[in-house]
Amino acid sequence: MNLLEVNNLKMHFPVHGGVMSRVVGAVKAVDGVSLTINKGETLGIVGESGCGKSTLGKAIVRLTKPTEGSILLNGIDITHMSQGHLRPLRKQFQMMFQDPAESLNPRMSVGEIITEPMLIQKIGNAVSRREKAIKLLERVGLPASAVDKFSFEFSGGQRQRVGVARAIALQPELLVLDEPVSALDVSVQSQVLNLLMELQEEMGIAYMFIAHDLAVVKHISDNVAVMYLGKIVEMADADIIYKNPKHTYTKALISAIPIPDPTVDRERMILDGDVPSPINPPKGSAFGHRLNHPAYDETIGLDMPLVEIEPGHWVAADPCCLGAEDYAKVREMV
């Protein structure tokens, strides 16, 4: 059984307009996403800003109520559970946020921040919780004395370590990490990534790792899903997706990564424009629209599901974004 199974998840936000503030449309932030995560594995989610990757993460840990679809954790459907019923299950899944400065309460000591989840779950007493907090701090590489300090007394990297300590305090099975290292400097970034990889090894936590830095995502992930405008366009093993990307958008993202070698001179694929607004998305192939692809008109109204083109390698059956051979192959499979 998969640890996490997400089926056709949709997260739409209503848009109000007019004098009566009636609902005039919807932001389709996440629009039909299906994925699975196995115990102890990492799924990386990449995409440009506004593609819905953070919204997906928040919906999975049920910080928002999904519009449609289902989320199964250890086989239990948590999609429509009330927050009260969810609370005991929250031990199993936690979320960690991007900006350590904003996600840690400046009025609480580090000890209070780390023990809060245990307090809510009514685990232990004040003394044992404090002991646990000190152990956790030492585990993430901070001195025990940090327990009585405040988060603003620490640097960005240290604060993110506090965030890690809080997230693992309840020994979750799934941790959703939303851009956990993007606010950090390179040398500190690798320290935090190493810590995350060690913890996964030790505790068998599964990660959903959301980031825009493809090199980082590739390094830490078993599987990678590429999102564009609320949908997954390609999903495969991390090495395979970088070596043999099928979807044009994945290719474009990879080609945009700056290579730290001045002697490499390569032909870049430069994308024009930006991601279109999710309020009024293109009717056909979303990325075909950005490419101004000649076949775009044919895709209007066409169903373009994710198809398993090779074992474990899923790609959207989009005529604008696949090579002719690949498209013929997926067309047969639909």
Binding site: S187, S190, L193, H219, S221, P260
Partner: peptide, 24 residues
């Protein structure tokens, strides 16, 4: 040297330990 080594590159083997610059 430390800065160059601690960069995550596409060709670094997956899940290998990354080089870091100690302390801050």
């Amino acid at each position: 040297k430390g800065l160059l080594a601690s960069m995550t590159k596409l060709e670094t083997p997956r899940k290998s330990e990354l080089k870091t610059i100690p302390n801050m």
